[in-house]
């Protein structure tokens, strides 16, 4: 089977798929798929996009104020899967401060672009990470107030 080659510069609009090679690679072979165990989990985020019904769950394990482990699961479109995977590679090993600053633009840049109508998909992972970071804060506060 022959396919037109796509480059980062030519994301293949038109006759073939509207996605970059990097995006397709993350879709076919997503990084950090799975769940973290209860003990490992320091923060958990669950977000959905009500407009398209897509959903994402994300777990983080933190040590020394760094994201040591990250895992995700997603019910979603190719854009949601690929951007979530890309996001986990951006967040892995980062300090919490750095992780908080990751934006959808960073994710899209890593993937070499995304079709316009798929831009919103890249928010899913970013929002899930923010939710997990917030969840961690709350867990810490709860611990602190517990006798």
């Amino acid at each position: 089977m022959e396919r037109e080659t796509r480059t980062e510069e030519n994301p293949g609009h038109g006759p073939t798929l509207p996605y970059t090679k990097t995006l397709l690679e993350h879709f076919v072979n997503p990084r950090n798929v799975g769940e973290l165990s209860e003990e490992e989990t320091d923060g958990f985020g669950l977000v959905g996009d009500p407009s398209c019904g897509d959903q994402m769950k994300l777990w983080i394990s933190v040590s020394d104020e760094r994201i040591e482990k990250i895992a995700f699961k997603s019910f979603g479109c190719p854009g949601a899967i690929a951007t979530s995977s890309a996001l986990t590679t951006l967040a892995e090993g980062r300090t919490l401060e750095e992780a908080r600053r990751i934006t959808d633009d960073d994710v899209i840049e890593l993937l070499g672009g995304i079709p316009g109508h798929k831009r919103h998909c890249s928010l899913l992972g970013v929002r899930a990470l923010q939710a997990a970071l917030e969840d961690r804060e709350q867990r810490l506060q709860q611990k602190a107030t517990q006798p």
Binding site: L24, F27, F75, G76, C77, P78
Partner: peptide, 16 residues
């Protein structure tokens, strides 16, 4: 059930 149609379509598309 449990998977998104668009993702199935892309998966199949990649298989031609």
């Amino acid at each position: 059930p449990g998977v998104d149609g668009e993702s199935i379509i892309l998966g199949l598309d990649l298989a031609g």
